[in-house]
Design a protein around this nucleic acid. Structure first.
Lengths: 191, 191
DNA sequence: GACGTACAATTTGATGTCGAACGACCGATC
DNA sequence: GATCGGTCGTTCGACATCAAATTGTACGTC
């Protein structure tokens, strides 16, 4: 999955494909590498420590959030885990089916649902998390502590940039037009 | 999606959850941020320039590979795009249905299939790629060229580490046991 | 208490995601 | 020219993924 082709060669081809339209090379490279790294790391985790417990990366992240922060409303879990609330419904169902999490009705608000770990879920996380952290150290082995910090900081600034200015940017790009609907997704019922 | 909670607070909780087992903090932070950044950037792309053409990020990457490198065997496209060959089959089917790519039998090897862009696919990429590159520049706006380079390099080293040593590492972790089967996936047919 | 607005999670439909099983095919060897 | 080990893309099953539609609840106002 690391570009089998050289970066230089790729950029030359991109230039020629576009016939002189200027390209932001450094930005293109850093964004491409973010995706490569995320996929490679996720794959390594799923095929090492998560495989034995039959967890996907997403399922692990959800468990992690509930483990660290305790019983939480589902929308906070979704936000912390970085997935949509619709996705969380499915993931929570899977985890509930395996006896790792529990759903509880909110004591005072009938709309809300709380997620918490079962004893088995707690036990699993106490075992799996240190193993996973060891793999985090493994994949980042070639970076010293300072490089880790600087890289983490740069990535955080990208996240902040999208969070703070992304929505406005998307509005500007649309320039007044209504956003195109997504092709997939639920259709309106006939009345 | 950026941790609503503070890093410091999170780390304290992790410590207490584990009761003294030491954790690699810098590595944990950089890996967490890689995933946050990848998800945020992908979401921004899909909701800005890709939305109008009804492309997912994966579909765009596949188109990009075929656009830049020309007609290619599917296994190379999958590798360059960073997805499994099974996934590529589905994505290529979708793109073929929209008239953006074409499948061609390999001239001398009946097992292989070649992917290439249709004229419509070419036209789409000439229009969409510069737009997407502009969004790459937008999300990386807070990083100067040098920071982009350093960050891209650090991420590349993580990818290389996993590619070069991941498989061996996973073997060591198993320590001679056969790997656990994945729960999902095709089952063997009855004989 | 009926009504309306707002917000919560779930459902839905199309698509992506993986690894393993599978069938078609290649090339070599006998 | 039959067999055999290996490779290629596809199929399969379980799951993840999103946004929009939907259902249900909360909490005002009248």
């Amino acid at each position: 999955m690391p570009g089998q082709r050289s970066i230089i060669e790729t950029e030359k081809l991109v230039e020629s494909k576009l016939g002189g339209i200027p390209i932001q090379h450094e930005q293109m490279a850093v964004i491409a590498n973010i995706h490569r790294a995320a996929a490679a790391v996720r794959g390594h985790f799923e095929n090492s420590v998560l495989r034995g417990s039959d967890l996907t990366w997403t399922a692990f992240v959800v468990l992690w959030v509930v483990w660290i922060w305790g019983e939480q409303e589902t929308r906070y879990v979704a936000e912390e885990a970085g997935i949509s609330k619709g996705t969380l419904t499915g993931v929570a169902r899977t985890l509930e089916g395996r006896g790792l999490v529990r759903r509880t009705d909110h004591p005072s608000d009938g709309r809300r649902v709380l997620l918490s770990l079962t004893d088995e879920g707690e036990k699993l996380m106490r075992r799996v998390f240190p193993e996973l952290n060891a793999e985090e150290a493994f994949v980042a082995q070639q970076l010293d502590a300072d490089e880790c910090k600087k890289t983490a900081d740069a990535l955080r600034r990208i996240v902040v940039q999208v969070e703070e200015h992304g929505e406005e940017r998307r509005r500007e790009l649309l320039n007044g037009q209504e956003p195109a609907p997504r092709r997939s997704g639920r259709r309106a019922a006939k009345p």
